[in-house]
Amino acid sequence: MAVTLSLSVNGKPVHATVDPRTLLVELLRNHLGLTGTHVGCDTAQCGACTVLVDDRAVKACNVLAAQMEGAKVVTIEGIAAADGTLHPMQAAFKECHGLQCGFCTTGMVMSAIDLVNRHPKASEAKIREELEGNLCRCTGYHNIVKAVQHGAAAMGK
C-alpha cells in the first residue's frame, strides 16, 4: 500500500508516492534529497529536524509525510534568496557565531524564524523559552540567543 500526496516544498510542487509510515523528514531527506534537515533524536525532543509547515515550525521527525497533503513546507534549503543571499536569520547566525558543528543549526534557524514571526520583539528570556525545543550541545545557546536577537532586528527592517 502506498500513499500519494501533493505538496509544495520550498516553493516547488512535489508529487510523491510513499509508504504510509514515511515520516516528513524521510520524505525530505531520502525522497527529495534535502539533507539539510537533520535527524538528531527520532522522538521530537532535539529539534534538529525543524522545518516550516504553513509558516509554523514543525518537527519533521514527528509527522507523517501523508499528513502533508496540500501543505506548504519550507526547509533550510528554501530560505535564502534565489541569488544565494542568506536569509537575515542565516546571516545573523554567521555574524554572531551562533553555530559550531552545524548539526542543530538548520533546525535552530527554522525555529528562530518562526519565533520571530510570532514574537518580533522577543526578550532574551522569551527567546530562551521559545528555543526550549531545540537542543544544541556546542554553543551553550549564548550566541544563538544573540543571533536570534540580531536576526529579529534584521527581519523587522
Partner: peptide, 12 residues
C-alpha cells in the same frame, strides 16, 4: 564553514 552549515549543504 558556516556558509554550508547555514544553507543545509553540509555533508554529514
Amino acid at each position: 564553514e558556516d556558509a554550508r552549515f547555514l544553507t543545509g549543504t553540509g555533508q554529514y
